[in-house]
Design a protein around this nucleic acid. Structure first.
Lengths: 139, 139
DNA sequence: GATGCCATCTCAAGTAACTTGAGATGCAAG
DNA sequence: CTTGCATCTCAAGTTACTTGAGATGGCATC
């Protein structure tokens, strides 16, 4: 298990280099050790940690929430209940967002279909896409 | 049809005052006339315009897209085809986002259910919520 | 030894779309 | 005259990056 540089870590955890430095800066990741006091070095554990961050982000958690989750996953703070609660909150938020997007989807579809039927010419003053508020915006 | 202040406009179009000033600043809304060279004044047309902005934003268009849409809705530039194309692009993006969120929903649900079954104690080292990557993050 | 070149470094600024706050001012009511 | 409200401007904060400039270290090459 040799140490490696930030490029390797980025590659292996599928996270851009700039993000890694950013995560370190805001305390999501611990300060990395330096080789020659200059280049950051990492090991296998860092890959797991960073994978955890990436996966959590992909699940929609904010960086603040990720920070909390990482804290809760440390052996001395191990706490599933809180983590599960956080996940449930997140799940609720995701479902809410889906509902909103579905409504948006319906609205957009309606506008587009109406436009297809009404404005063959391409220049109808009653175009339902451009007249979202049922009234043209004119000065 | 009397003129009114920014507070009235905000109220009637359901858009925060700060946003109205921001929209003006970035050119989404025209520079408002001033009473006494100080307070912005608006009329009914401004309400329609701002409603158009708000509705477009609610449909998920970016401010840049809103700017384009407003341009396309001006009588001299009236162009449904472009507007419709923009809407279709937006619809595609919305559907994509819904797909992603549904996958996230499934993942989160799985984790939560697994956690419910596995970690009754609240402190399982194998908690599926905390071990998103199937491995704990430890140092 | 000089010269590239690559990976890395730091620091600063840019992005979207607001949001918040400080401190000043006009105007009307009491 | 003071109080309060609506408004004003300007600056900075928010989230999570992303981009860019300019410096440096180490290694291979000529």
């Amino acid at each position: 298990m040799r140490d490696f540089g930030i490029g390797q870590l980025a590659e292996r955890a599928q996270v851009p280099i700039a993000n890694i430095r950013y995560y370190e800066e805001i305390g999501i990741l611990p300060k990395a050790a330096r080789r020659n006091g200059l280049h950051r070095t990492y090991d296998e554990v860092d890959i797991k940690r960073l994978n955890f961050v990436r996966t959590s982000r992909e699940l929609g958690f904010s960086l603040e929430q990720v920070k909390t989750l990482m804290h809760l996953s440390e052996p001395q703070n191990l706490n599933c209940d809180e983590a599960r609660a956080l996940s449930k909150t997140q799940l609720t938020a995701v479902r809410q967002k889906i509902k909103e997007l579905r409504m948006i989807e319906v609205e957009l579809s309606k506008h587009i279909i109406a436009c297809d039927e009404l404005c063959g010419c391409g220049r109808s003053a009653e175009c339902p896409v451009l007249a979202v508020t049922s009234d043209q915006v004119r000065k």
